[in-house]
Design a protein around this nucleic acid. Sequence first.
DNA 1: CGCCTATTTGATCTGATTCAAACAATGTGG
DNA 2: CCACATTGTTTGAATCAGATCAAATAGGCG
Lengths: 245, 245
Amino acid sequence: MDAHASFQHPLVRKLESIFALTPEERSAVVALGGTVREIGPDHDVVVEGDRPSECCLILDGWCCRYKVTSVGKRQILSFHFAGDIPDLQSLHLRVMDHSLGAMVPSRLLFVAHSAIRDLIRRHPRIGDAFWRDTLIDAAVFREWMLGLGRRDARRRMAHMFCELFVRLDALGMVEERAYGLPLSQADLGDALGITPVHVNRTLQELRGERLIAVHRGRVEVRDWDGLVRVGEFDDTYLHLRKEAA
Amino acid sequence: MDAHASFQHPLVRKLESIFALTPEERSAVVALGGTVREIGPDHDVVVEGDRPSECCLILDGWCCRYKVTSVGKRQILSFHFAGDIPDLQSLHLRVMDHSLGAMVPSRLLFVAHSAIRDLIRRHPRIGDAFWRDTLIDAAVFREWMLGLGRRDARRRMAHMFCELFVRLDALGMVEERAYGLPLSQADLGDALGITPVHVNRTLQELRGERLIAVHRGRVEVRDWDGLVRVGEFDDTYLHLRKEAA
DNA sequence: CGCCTATTTGATCTGATTCAAACAATGTGG
DNA sequence: CCACATTGTTTGAATCAGATCAAATAGGCG
């Protein structure tokens, strides 16, 4: 009857998925204080140009980071879920070079930079874990760059569905090979670098190939191997193998 | 008659461009040991799948990081010059998710991970500087993502020429508004996510607009403001303003 | 010179965009 | 519970940026 096992702090779970923590480190992370706020949907948490003095930990919800062209075209850079600290980089990069928004109503814990710095000073290995987290972030950017530059819409979309599957599965958010995708086709287009119309047609292709099925905002993976093949998906870049310092 | 000012360690110069170091920290950085090796041109320093036990500091030359699609299409992710440690992320990401190659004969200093970890343990602020460096790296990826996903070839190319100008200028590698660009048009295409043929035509466009001129592997910026306007260039994402912890 | 590689040009094709309209869904207020 | 506004999805047709294929030209350089 270990009630705690199922009641894990989202940040602890996240960090433990990429780094081995000691019990003391675990409790130090849990002790991190801050203020909880509800955001969204379609509201921004931080926007380009801001100089935040706190980071936000997602407790619940779906957020994305994005940039906008001077003619107003949006590119989504990444998606984030419970346990992620999407603006952790603000700890060392004073001014935001992109924005962070919520796709669905999300619960965020805002933690002061000073509190995080304190935590790292007392537990340098937690600092390493955070650093590693931001490095994985960058690794995901690299993989997306490869897709944006060198893969066509169909492969790119298949790849994204694979990535989301793996990441959400690690959070226990996949059921019956399906997960919720709270995105409009326009959002999807902003992530894939294509137009909403083309998203629609590409989606139909993947459905036609029996790789996925979509009903009521849920993506069901009907042929994992096929999807992986089409998306050229290899999860190495997610660096999920946990590592100690 | 400060002979040292002109004879600066490349890593010190680099770190000081993004972070304020104390004299002690400076000399600790200079004391970093390793082995010097000559690489390239067109040779790889590390490749995807490797598990390096050292990082490499560029003393001299031009390197790039890249990934390759399963059908062999290459996407260049970033360019690196003297002072950069392009594979610094290997300190916390065991397996390389991309490759690092030299575009021209380059002199690299290979420094053991253990030496870097030592340095950071003794000087935690240097660790912050390194972390900040990898975060800036990620910021550049984000900006490239925006270009790859949302800007056409012409804007993307103009943007890249702006970025290279600013970065090389900071290294004193710009003379008479011109800098050396040791890349074939195929390389340029791999960086911009377009074909070599289209690189050629796009280059001609920019030349036709009197924004740049190219002779013998040198890019001359003939109309900086115009180039900035076309490329929608804003250097915020380079985070060049130096910051202390 | 002759070889090799890079650049340039031309013609054609195609993945994706654009524009426009039809068609769900979902929600709101009367 | 219906009328209707609103937003998201779907379909069609025309167009375009960039890819592809192929061949010509221009540079290096042993």
